[in-house]
Nucleic acid binder design. Structure first.
Length: 514
RNA sequence: GAGAGCGUAGCUCAGCUGGUAGAGCAACGGACUUUUAAUCCGUAGGUCCAGGGUUCGAUCCCCUGCGCUCUCACCA
C-alpha cells in the first residue's frame, strides 16, 4: 500500500475533521478547567491503582433492607452516568460492569475539600468511592460518600442519559460509547463469552483438545468462499487468509491427535449484511472413529449446555416467536425435505428442470445437483424453523465428505438449521486419498472456481495417503449461535467491532487521481 | 455489486410549494438537604454531511461525492 493512498483525503473528510475539532473544544474546555482545579486541590485527575473495591452488584446485595438502618462500609469504583441536585445534596449514579448504584454527597457531612473536589466532576468521569451503604427516604439503595477518589477525568461529553445512543454508525464505530450508554450491551457480550466458555468446557470434558492452526494459507481450502489475498514480503509469496481450518485439523488427525478442535477467526471476502461479517468466529471439531451421527449428538450437547449457562429454560425467544431447543432435535433427509417443500422428486431431472425454469434459474450447462441445491436453498431453507438436522446431501456437492455405504450418490453430511439460519455443518470425513484427489479435480459444471469447495491441495492428499482414521467433523458458526441464543437478528449486535468502511483512509476508488 | 431511504446543536429528534433554524436532555450561571428522566430562573451553543448547479434567495429543488440503514445478489 503506497503512501499517497493515505494522503489522498477528499475535502469532505478534512472539513468534517475541522468541524469536529471546533465543536469538541467547547465541552473539552470546560472539563480542562475542572481538571486544573483537581490538580490544584492536589489530586491526580488520571488516577492511580484502586485496590480492594467490590462490584456494584455485590454492594447492592449488602445494602440494608430498611430505611434508616446503616449498612456496612464499602469501596466501589465506576463511571458517573447521571447526577441530580437537591439543595446541599448531590445524587450521582455510578456504573460499573456489574450494575449501577446511587451515590449521595452531603454538604453537611463532607469535608470542604471533598465537596470542592466533587464540584469538579462531570458525567463520564471515573471515580472511586468509600462510604456507607444506606437507603434514602424513598428507599433507594445508596452509598453515602465519605471519600471521593478521582480515577479518570473524561474530556468528552457522554451521550444523552435518557434516550441513550441510537445512531447505528456511532454504536459500531465507537463501540465504547455503546457499552457506556446502553446497559444491555455488556451483559449481552459477556453472554457471548459464557457461550464460548461453555463450548470449551463441554469439549474438554469429552477429551477433545484445543489447538491453533495457521491463518495464512497458501491454498484457501475447506469451504466454498472467496478468500482475502495477502502477501509475504521476504518470501515474496502470495497467501490467503483462511476460509476454514478444516484441512489443517485433519492433518492433525492423520498425525494421531484423535479428538481435536479449534475456535478461531476465519475470513471470507463476501458481502456484508445482518448475518455476515467478513471475519467471523467458527469452531471446528474432529473426532476420530466417529461419523456424522456422533457429530449430531455432540452438536445437541454443545448447544444445550451453552443455553444452560445463560438461561433457565431451553425455550428461547426469537423475535416474536420462540425456539424450543429441548432434545431430541428432528432429523430429516435432504431428499424428503426437497420433496416436501419443492413438490417433486429431486432425482426427476425433467421435473427439477421445470421447477428451475419457473424460478428463473440458469440451467444450461449446470450440473443437476447444483440446480437441485439452488432450488433447495430457495424453496426449503426458509421452512427449516428447527432446530432440524438436514442429513444426507447429494454427494457431488460435498467433495470432502465420505459417501454413504452402498450409496455413492449420497454424502454423509448434515447441516443444522434453526429459524432458517444455517448454524452447523458436519461430515463423516472422507479419508480415501484417491477419491479425495479425484474430487479435488472435479469441478461441477455451472460452478465457478470460488463457488467450489474442491480446490486441489496436493499436500493434503499426501497427508491422507499416510492414513486418517474414519472420523466425524463438525463446524459451528459461533456468531450465529450467539445471535440465536441472545435473540439478536443482527450479527453487528454480537461482534464488538464489525467491519465498517474506514472513515479516514480513502479506498482505492477514490485514490485514482494520480 | 444493484435499488430505495436517510445525514439538522455533544446526544435524541422537530422544521409547512424555497425566505440562512427549534425543542428536550447535556453544558455554563443561580435557587433548593432525600433526589432518581428531580424541579425552577437565566445564558450560551449551528459551514443544516461535502462540493457544484437552478434561483433575487437553498437545510428544503437538481447533479456529483462520502457515510449509514433497509431490500436484493454472493456467502455461513
Amino acid at each position: 500500500m503506497s503512501d499517497n493512498e493515505h494522503k489522498n483525503d477528499n475535502p469532505n473528510k478534512n472539513n468534517k475533521k475541522n468541524k469536529n475539532k471546533k465543536k469538541i473544544d467547547r465541552f473539552e474546555k470546560e472539563r480542562l478547567k475542572k481538571l486544573e482545579v483537581i490538580e490544584e486541590l492536589g489530586h491526580d485527575p488520571w488516577g492511580q491503582r484502586f485496590d480492594d473495591h467490590m462490584k456494584i452488584a455485590q454492594a447492592r446485595e449488602l445494602a440494608p433492607a430498611e430505611n434508616g438502618e446503616t449498612g456496612q462500609d464499602v469501596r466501589i469504583a465506576g463511571r458517573i452516568m447521571n447526577r441530580r441536585k437537591a439543595g446541599k445534596l448531590r445524587f450521582y449514579d455510578l456504573k460499573d460492569w456489574s450494575g449501577r448504584i446511587q451515590l449521595l454527597f452531603s454538604r453537611g457531612e463532607l469535608p470542604e475539600e471533598q465537596w470542592s473536589l466533587m464540584g469538579q466532576l462531570d458525567m463520564g468521569d471515573i471515580i472511586g468511592i468509600d462510604g456507607k451503604l444506606k437507603r434514602t427516604d424513598s428507599g433507594e439503595i445508596s452509598v453515602f460518600v465519605e471519600k471521593l477518589t478521582i480515577l479518570c477525568k473524561s474530556l468528552t461529553q457522554p451521550p444523552e442519559k435518557h434516550h441513550g445512543l441510537k445512531d447505528p454508525e456511532i454504536l459500531v464505530r465507537q463501540r465504547y460509547l455503546d457499552l457506556i450508554a446502553n446497559d444491555d450491551v455488556i451483559p449481552r457480550m459477556l453472554n457471548r463469552t459464557k457461550i464460548i466458555d461453555s463450548i470449551r468446557q463441554t469439549l474438554k470434558g469429552k477429551d477433545f483438545h484445543e489447538v491453533e492452526t495457521p491463518v495464512l494459507h497458501a491454498i484457501a481450502g475447506g469451504a466454498a468462499a472467496r478468500p482475502f489475498l495477502t502477501h509475504h514480503n521476504t518470501l515474496d509469496m502470495e497467501l490467503f487468509l483462511r476460509i476454514a481450518p478444516e484441512l489443517h485439523l485433519k492433518r492433525l488427525m492423520v498425525g494421531g491427535i484423535e479428538r481435536v478442535f479449534e475456535i478461531g477467526r476465519v475470513f471470507r471476502n463476501e458481502g456484508v449484511d445482518t448475518t455476515h461479517n467478513p471475519e467471523f468466529t467458527m469452531i471446528e471439531i474432529y473426532q476420530a472413529y466417529g461419523d456424522y451421527n456422533s457429530m449430531m449428538d455432540l452438536t445437541e450437547e454443545i448447544v444445550c449446555n451453552a443455553i444452560d449457562t445463560i438461561s433457565d429454560t431451553r425455550v428461547l425467544p426469537w423475535g416474536d416467536q420462540t425456539v424450543d431447543f429441548n432434545s431430541p432435535w428432528s432429523r430429516k433427509t435432504y431428499t424428503e425435505l426437497f420433496e416436501e417443500h419443492a413438490g417433486c422428486d429431486m432425482n426427476d431431472h425433467e421435473a427439477v428442470l421445470k421447477l428451475a425454469k419457473e424460478l428463473h434459474f440458469e440451467t444450461d450447462g449446470v450440473h443437476h445437483d447444483v440446480i437441485v441445491n439452488e432450488i433447495f436453498e430457495e424453496k426449503v431453507e426458509d421452512h427449516l424453523v428447527g432446530p432440524v438436522f438436514v442429513i444426507d446431501y447429494p454427494a457431488s456437492l460435498c467433495p470432502l465428505t465420505k459417501r454413504k455405504k452402498g450409496c455413492p450418490e449420497i454424502a454423509e453430511r448434515f447441516e443444522l438449521f434453526i429459524q432458517g439460519m444455517e448454524l452447523a455443518n458436519a461430515y463423516t470425513e472422507l479419508n480415501d486419498p484417491r477419491l479425495q484427489e479425484e474430487l479435488f479435480e472435479t469441478q461441477l459444471s455451472g460452478l465457478s472456481d470460488e463457488d467450489s469447495m474442491a480446490k486441489m491441495d496436493t499436500d493434503f492428499v499426501k497427508a491422507l495417503k499416510v492414513g486418517m482414521p474414519p472420523a466425524g467433523g463438525l463446524g459451528i458458526g459461533i456468531d450465529r449461535l450467539v445471535m440465536l441464543l441472545t435473540n439478536k437478528t443482527s450479527i453487528r449486535d454480537i461482534i464488538f467491532f464489525p467491519l465498517v468502511r474506514s472513515e479516514e483512509g480513502p479506498n482505492s476508488k477514490k485514490s485514482d487521481k494520480k
